[in-house]
Design a protein around this nucleic acid. Structure first.
Lengths: 202, 202
DNA sequence: CATTAAGTGTCTACTAGGTAGACACTTACG
DNA sequence: CGTAAGTGTCTACCTAGTAGACACTTAATG
C-alpha cells in the first residue's frame, strides 16, 4: 500500500531528477538565462510535453532543484556516519563531516556557485542553509570544563566554516573530504584554544 | 517515418544510458565484480524487470558500455571542430584535439582506468582504440619538404600520445584540454625536430 | 516593416516502456 | 543446516512519456 505510493512515484522522481541534472549541466554551459525548456528536454532526452507534465516552467524546475538540494543537505547532517567510512570520534566534527560529505558527493551541483548567471537564489540561500544547519547541529565540546557554546562563538565558527567550504568548492575540490575536514578540525581547535586564552586574560 | 524510429527508441536509449551510468558509478564504489543487477537498478531508480528488458545480464551491459564509448570515441575523431571552441590551425593537431575533448567530456567513464576491478576489457581495448584512431587519423605535416609519415614514426608518436593521455587521466585531469593538447603539440614538435636532425646526420 | 525562425504553454489521443509480483533456482554465510 | 540475497524469466497491467497540432510571443534579419 504505502509501498505502492513510493514505487509509483519512483518513475516520476526519476524523470524529475534527470531534468534537474540537465538544468545543472546546461547552466554551466550557457548560463541560466540562456537555457530554454527545449534545451533541457533535448539534453535529458525527453519529449517537450513531458517537461510540462512535471513543471509549469523553467523557474519551477530551478526552484525545485535548489530547494531539494538544500533540503537534502539539511537532512544529511543529522544522519549517522556512513558505514564503512572513517568515523570521527569527536562529536565536534560529526555534523561538519556530514555537510562536507554531502557537498563532495554532489560536486556537480555545488560547483554552480562558481558561475555568475547561475541558479536563482543559490548565492543567497546556500550560505544561509550552511549557517543554519551548522549552528543548529554543531555540538560544542567542553574543554577543561569550560563550556564554549556561547552564541557569538557559534556564529564566528559557523562563518569561518562557511568560508572554508566556499574556498574548497571554488578551488575545485582539490582536497578529499577527509583531508579537508581535518583542516577544519585543526583550525577549530586553534580558535578554541585562543578563545580560552583570551578568556583567561579577562 | 525515419523520425519515428529515432524518437521511439529515444526512450530505450535513455534508459540504457542511465543503466550504463549507474554501472560506471558503482564500479568505482565497490568494484565491477561486486556490482549486482539489483545494485544497478536501485542506483538508477528502475525496476529490476526493466533491466532484463534491455540486457540479458550484467556482462552484456558492461560490454555495451565499453563498446559504445570506444565507438563514440572513434566517431568523434573525424568530426569537425566544435563551434565556439578554439580552433587549432595545424592539421597535425585536429584528431588529437578531438580525442582529448571527447575524453575530457566523459571523464566519469575514462576514470575507470584507474580502478583494478573495473570494466572487463577496458585496460586492453582502450589503448587499442586510441592507437588505432590516432594512427589512422593523424595527418603528418611535411616540414621543409621532408615527409615524416613513415610507419615507425607514426607508431612512436601514437604510443607517446597514449602515454600522455594515460597520465592525464590518472592524475585526474589537472590540465584543461587546451592546456594538455598544447603540451602534446610542443612535445610532438620537439620529436619531429630531433627526428629531422637524426635524418640529416645519416 | 514584413518575414522567418525559435521558443512557449496547452491540450488530446495513443502506446510501449516500465512496474508489480510471483516463480524456481543458485550461491553464500554464520 | 537454514535463511538471506541475488538471478533469470514470465504475465498482466497501466501510466509516464510521446507525437503533433494549436495560438501566441519574441528576436533577428533584410
Amino acid at each position: 500500500m504505502n509501498n505502492e505510493q513510493n514505487t509509483k512515484s519512483q518513475r516520476q522522481n526519476r524523470t524529475k531528477a534527470h531534468l534537474k541534472q540537465a538544468l545543472t549541466e546546461l547552466i554551466k554551459e550557457k548560463g541560466y538565462h540562456s537555457v530554454t525548456v527545449k534545451d533541457i528536454v533535448d539534453h535529458a532526452a525527453y519529449n517537450r510535453s513531458t517537461f510540462y507534465i512535471h513543471y509549469i516552467d523553467k523557474m519551477e524546475l530551478a526552484e525545485d532543484l535548489l530547494v531539494s538540494m538544500l533540503q537534502e543537505l539539511e537532512d544529511s547532517v543529522g544522519k549517522a556516519y556512513v558505514p564503512g567510512q572513517k568515523v570521527y570520534s569527536a562529536k565536534l566534527n560529526a555534523p561538519s563531516f556530514n555537510i562536507v560529505s554531502y557537498i563532495y558527493k554532489n560536486q556537480s551541483f555545488f560547483t554552480l556557485i562558481n558561475y555568475d548567471d547561475t541558479l536563482p537564489g543559490l548565492h543567497t540561500r546556500f550560505p544561509q542553509t550552511i549557517l543554519k544547519v551548522y549552528k543548529e547541529q554543531f555540538i560544542f565540546e567542553t574543554i577543561n570544563n569550560i563550556p564554549v557554546n556561547m552564541d557569538y562563538f557559534k556564529r564566528y565558527t559557523a562563518y569561518g566554516f562557511y568560508g572554508l567550504l566556499h574556498t574548497w568548492i571554488q578551488n575545485g575540490f582539490k582536497e578529499t573530504p577527509e583531508e579537508f575536514i581535518q583542516e577544519v578540525i585543526e583550525l577549530t581547535k586553534t580558535h578554541i584554544h585562543s578563545f580560552q586564552y583570551i578568556g583567561h586574560n579577562k
